[in-house]
Design a protein around this nucleic acid. Structure first.
Lengths: 230, 230
DNA sequence: ATATCGCTATCCCATTTGGGAGAGACACGG
DNA sequence: CCGTGTCTCTCCCAAATGGGATAGCGATAT
């Protein structure tokens, strides 16, 4: 699925920095973040390292895909929350095209579930936006070598997350509606099944989440990023 | 309560940029954000304007207070989410000291309640981190003149928020525990009152939030930022 | 072919919750 | 002093929820 690099710049407002031939083989980076401030900040940090070079910037998921296809960067530094196509989708698609792609996910306040999904999908690294400059640089270099980098803090949380049972698709649906404040009857109507069946699903949910009532379930699910309540 | 500016740099790791006498009266800015990346980005953006000058940076609430007391900046650009002391507290204390202080709150994904509280406490402006460079610059200049600046998008949401009734202190307590997944009996025990009384409070909550069950209440409260579930 | 898993459904029973209507005590501001 | 609001508590009743057991059906994996 690799497109030849002759592809014309196809991303709408994406900004492909004009390339200079690097004397030493610099690490070529694409930066994807919808916040202008963050892109500026990353650019400033990366500019301090001569062997790191931002070759393109994107501010949504589609641009990111287009830009990566076009520029074939050594590393993609990727924000999870982006318009149009979110970070997780981007990771999935890029890894499908090229399983060896080096993706460093960078995010602010995200849940274990997001992190987990991205790493499972093939992202090589995961750092938080409050990381220090050296940590960011190290992470980029490590991922560029094809190795994986994860903040120790996250590693612990991921260990917990790994032991938690997955929800079935139906359970996820029920959980969404439950979290939205629907009654069993309403959920049943929405899903076109019997209210009693909803009770069964909710019983399963409670067991998997380790909770004993709806509110606790909403809490647990929110913490784990199984539902989004914003 | 204004301390003389002779105060020694007291903030632990705060970074006071060495002052040069500006030829034209530049707008002196203190930047408070716990994310190194964001500080770098803001610095880069502000550096493009000759009449704007960052005189200090802080990465938590206490540093921010110390730095403002010491440097008396024209504008404080303040992130809401910070360790030690959150942004709202900083606004409150600074405004207490100097009601004319020019504070521009800058944040990412925050709730109407946060915004509302800050503006009510006396912040002059409120922008989102995904603002464009011109918008950021304009916001800083506007706030520096003592005028107020708020993203149009936020103005609408604030209008809604203004009509919502306030919760009483007791109701807030009950809401917290309810949202945590406690039963009426548990809440009663925690607050040392009768379970029946909890029901009364919850009835009030439902009316004020416009909900009819716990899950909906958790939802509404979360949206409005009345509770925090992370 | 057999086992497992997910989805569906039903029955019973105890507990919790939601809705309504009061009412006394206390503090605060006009 | 009087109204208002908050916090407290009570009683009643209907609806929703939580817990348990059980079971058919289809798909999928072993």
């Amino acid at each position: 699925m690799k497109k030849p690099s002759s592809t014309q710049a196809s991303a709408a407002r994406s900004k492909a920095v004009t390339e200079k031939k690097p004397k030493s083989p610099a690490i070529r980076i694409v930066l994807a973040d919808d916040h202008h401030v963050v892109r500026q900040g990353m650019a400033a940090i990366i500019a301090t390292e001569p062997d790191l070079k931002i070759v393109g910037e994107a501010c949504d998921g589609e641009q990111t895909l287009a830009l990566c296809a076009e520029l074939k960067p050594d590393v993609l530094v990727l924000d999870l929350r982006m318009p149009v196509l979110d970070g997780f989708e981007v990771v999935k698609r890029l890894i499908t095209d090229d399983p060896a792609a080096c993706i460093l996910v960078m995010t602010t306040y995200d849940t274990d579930e997001d992190i987990w999904r991205c790493l499972r999908a093939g992202a090589k690294g995961y750092i938080l936006k409050d990381a220090s400059q050296p940590e960011i640089i190290t992470a980029i270099r490590t991922v560029a070598r094809g190795e994986s980098f994860t903040t120790p803090l996250l590693a612990v949380r991921l260990a917990n997350r790994a032991t938690a049972p997955e929800l079935s698709p139906r359970e996820s649906e029920v959980l969404q509606l439950l979290a939205y404040g629907k009654t069993n009857k309403e959920i049943a109507t929405a899903l076109n099944i019997e209210p009693g069946t909803i009770k069964s699903h909710i019983q399963s949910l409670f067991k998997k989440l380790g909770t004993s009532n709806r509110s606790e379930a909403i809490n647990a699910a929110s913490k784990r990023g199984l539902i989004r309540m914003s």
